[in-house]
Design a protein around this nucleic acid. Structure first.
Lengths: 218, 218, 218, 218
DNA sequence: CATGAATGAGTATTCATTCAT
DNA sequence: GATGAATGAATACTCATTCAT
């Protein structure tokens, strides 16, 4: 009884430690994967950056692939949790919701960072089929959120009725996802400014408007 | 000497053959680099796909890096040759020139294909500093072409005067470069249709226009 | 001190527990060594089969080698204790004593099992020199027991005077030791039947006897 | 034409060299597998014994398992080729054929050597399922040869009608296969003598015969 | 032009073992 | 007793590259 209670506590504490360690390792791994790619990053690289030997990684992850998977998994989930309340608030104006989604996504992409790039690109192929399916499912969920906003806007007349919502989703995601390649924190544009510019171009394009005033009155 | 005299002719012929062989190898390599990445593609993979042994590759390329470099170099140059006449035709209407550029780029990206992706993304890091500089220079030249069109359009009033030309270039390139990830030749959209949709969104955005008719009269 | 006084009793009890645990671990280890060999069995395999972590094994055994040694040692001793009274009963008829020895050995080999195989074969090389010597000594003692029976039989005229006792010992042991490779508990032959068949062939061979009747009158 | 002819010759020569090299490596590997077991023998060990680096082994064998397989395969086939003519000569006297089989087997086992042990024992488990099946098939073929001899002898009256042929096959194989564990080339018994002693015991057992003379007149 | 043999550095992964808790 | 973290050495295997032929 006492013993059980005690070990229960210890279990929890140890688990917490372990979880923290895992998170720290994932953080390091993401940075290296980003910089050198999955194949270009050896477990020794990761271990060295963590301050221990490669063999020790196996006390936390069953394989390199598992490490990649957990890195993607955790980050994507956190990201979707952030987006969801905004995206699915069906009473909000679609234009505003789109704006918010772009803001959040760009912010996440640029400030918190490079983690995302991995998940959309080539590194996905290094996942096992099972893991790949799960990550792709999460990714698709993001598309679904955006898609709904566009469709809502078409109904309310905020967006042109003849646009292809699937296509617009791709366009928006494409633009945002590539910001991570050219964005520099020291550059002239802040994430918020970048988000705003993307939003405006997606909304109105680059052609001069007849009634500029109206377009800005939000 | 007989041998020398003879080999003079043969050399030229052989060189031609060699160049053809090199081109064929590069073709194979690009496909594999695209599918598995630079690190994920071994010289044996490439050689096997070519029908000979890995050692033989060294009769054509000094190193794996050289092969990557030549693959990028050649392709980028061919691509720029295609764009240049359109882009630098300063008498053409900017709107039309932009349309053409997008068409050519999308077409190249999707039909001729996957080769491009490599050059913009992560594989560039595997080039030696010297080679990297040259490839980046070519890449920048593309941006310059697009940039000029946008600036021209701002002067002629075709594009809004307050847009950030640099930014718009990034947006357009981002959209086009990612088509390669989601495009399927069997899908519902042809490259030409995709190019047209990109062009329209970049031009007018997704907001409904007041005078839809006017916008389409081209 | 209280602790000391108390621990006196507890120690004894704990030791008993410990001994029991050790025996249980050895049991598990033997099975795994048999199935996968010494090199093919990791301490983690053993620990997992025991339901705890590998590190815990070191609370019972100084090393993997020690575990192997104790497994062999204990089993061989138990086995020899069984054989000895029969083998060294110098008043019994050699033919009967041989029969009994074969019965016991086959039974032990097949029912209690696979443990023995290890000791005669290749796994011995993984013992330290000191331990190896001790195990080989026990093994040799078995040969000695059998040898004496054969020699006794030659004196009494039960066995042919010109047979090579050393050689016959090897033959008998060889036959019995290999039963473990092909015996199946679900097969058509029981251990007792197998022992009987071995005994008869060793005694009379496969050639038809002139007086079959006489040979069976036991 | 000339070129083809030439390369044909070279091919053959190179193949011959390669085959010779492979055979040499297999020879080395067998010795090491015998001494240290499959798991106990590293590819570095083998390579070192061959005088080159471990990586080079992969120019000859796809994997360690392939090396083990080829070692077993080749040797078993050679062995069976030797046995077959004797075993399947259905006009020869079963007693004589049995004698010859034992002689050949023991000789092969002891003079040419230790190679065999591997194939009958535990190392088989390291083969891939496909390879394992093939080796077991060859092994079973050996049993079949022996089995037929025994059955022939039962028909001709050379062997007791009531013996279990399958069992006798096991006994004979068991005895021979274990010789390799205790045989020493410097020992008092030659392979031929060992074969003869095994033959006699299997034929007549260790009990004194009534008519010793008759049994020896061969 | 092509290849087989060879290699040294590197890869992910496993393992027996230690130690503080 | 038991465990998690850590490690150094080893493992099978891969790879880009060289070189003699």
């Amino acid at each position: 009884m006492v013993k059980r209670a005690g070990s229960g506590y210890k279990m929890r504490k140890r688990s917490a430690n372990k979880a923290a360690s895992k998170a720290a390792i994932i953080e390091v791994a993401i940075d290296l994967f980003w910089e050198n790619g999955y194949n270009g990053t050896s477990l020794r690289d990761i271990a060295e950056a963590c301050g221990f030997e490669a063999a020790n990684l196996y006390n936390y992850f069953r394989s390199k692939e598992q490490l990649l998977y957990e890195a993607m998994q955790e980050e994507l989930e956190r990201f979707l949790e952030l987006l969801e309340p905004v995206a699915s608030d069906s009473r909000g104006a679609p234009v505003e919701r789109l704006k918010r989604i772009i803001e959040i996504h760009v912010e996440r992409m640029l400030v918190i960072g490079r983690r995302y790039k991995m998940m959309y690109d080539s590194e996905i192929r290094h996942l096992s089929p099972v893991h790949r399916k799960r990550i792709v499912a999460l990714r698709d969920y993001y598309s679904e959120l955006l898609f709904n906003i566009i469709e809502d806007g078409k109904k309310t007349g905020d967006f042109a009725a003849d646009i292809d919502a699937r296509f617009v989703v791709l366009i928006i995601a494409s633009i945002i996802m590539r910001t991570v390649f050219w964005f520099s924190p020291k550059g002239r544009l802040s994430p918020a400014e970048i988000a705003d510019m993307i939003y405006k171009i997606v909304l109105d394009g680059i052609r001069p408007r007849k009634q500029e005033v109206k377009a800005r009155k939000k």
